[in-house]
Design a protein around this nucleic acid. Sequence first.
DNA 1: CCTATTATGAACAGAGTGTCCATATATAGT
DNA 2: ACTATATATGGACACTCTGTTCATAATAGG
Lengths: 198, 198
Amino acid sequence: MDAVEPVRRGRGRRPAGEVRREVLRAAGELLLEQGVAGFTIEKVATRAGASRVTLYKWWPSKGALALDGFSTMVAAPLAFPDTGEIGTDLTGQLLDFVRLVRDTPAGRVMAELICHAQSDPDLAVALRERYTWPRTSMAVEVLDRAKERGQIRSDVDSEDVVAQLWGACYFQLLVFDRPLTDQFARSIIVNLLGGIRA
Amino acid sequence: MDAVEPVRRGRGRRPAGEVRREVLRAAGELLLEQGVAGFTIEKVATRAGASRVTLYKWWPSKGALALDGFSTMVAAPLAFPDTGEIGTDLTGQLLDFVRLVRDTPAGRVMAELICHAQSDPDLAVALRERYTWPRTSMAVEVLDRAKERGQIRSDVDSEDVVAQLWGACYFQLLVFDRPLTDQFARSIIVNLLGGIRA
DNA sequence: CCTATTATGAACAGAGTGTCCATATATAGT
DNA sequence: ACTATATATGGACACTCTGTTCATAATAGG
């Protein structure tokens, strides 16, 4: 079960950086393997060969540790092309997101982190600052540029649009039980860009 | 704190219906007061003046009990007019939802239940069958009728539209930290119905 | 080399879970 | 009315996880 070599040297100080690295690796692994449900301070400490006290010292909450571990495992590429055509840009970005969520364990963990943030204020702040905001702001920038180019009505709120695209995907994932397909991503972009009136 | 009269009669059998009613009332109250975070089998049992064993016997999981309690407290009205104008119908329905979520504790509890369902299969099934499906199917029906009337393109998937409206609201609530306003609801309907192209 | 910093093991109280048991009693069947 | 069954109950148990305190050991930096 625990295929990790804990590097136990007995009591006493270990290099802080080393311990930190071990803990983050253990946290990330545990998160991807068992999800937030099986993620406990105790298990992370055991797997990292560290003391729970050490974890309590460095991380204010379980959620903060989880997000740190997640970040070290999933280095978000966040590439974002600006081709000048808003439809192309949005499609590329949304498809990247859909595929990340659908084809890797990261998607499920993300969903669980969002959920856990509902009852963990520390995690909620960290998640917004380190994940939600950076990601959405890029989409918002692209949309704002499209508005300047006259491709989108000027009275449209870019953040509303982000909610109607990414929010729809999260809805599929969290509430509906429908699969998250490439076709779905393309369709909702068409719906929003072209309108659904005949 | 505990303003309930537990109706304790000592050991022995009490009428099953009575116990069940007490437990559901206690569960619903606790849920609205403290949310899912403070919702434990132990607290529900104490508040209902019942034994934990009894709860374990009747409800398969904490989530199932929570949803049952929630349902007894929040009898969803689910009124759904069909005026013949798809924009009017959607606006009315979405505004009802937005106001429920924004102005009552039910909204937060709903969000927490959805989140909890991510790691509780029993709750996930119950939530879909008893909440998500009935609600969304009504919106889908209205959209399908609008398609028959030619108000909406026939190649549009009604469930996609639901995801882009209700999903956007859930996104505001769970991921973004933006307030859920009436204006937001109206805007996203306009975006989707009329399209965002200039 | 000396000292401050830091990790560690052990232990603790507290809460919650999930499961036993024997006992008491309401309800249903005869 | 009597009996059998179903069911609620209190008490207890082992277990996990949380969050903390304490003395001890070992590294890192001057």
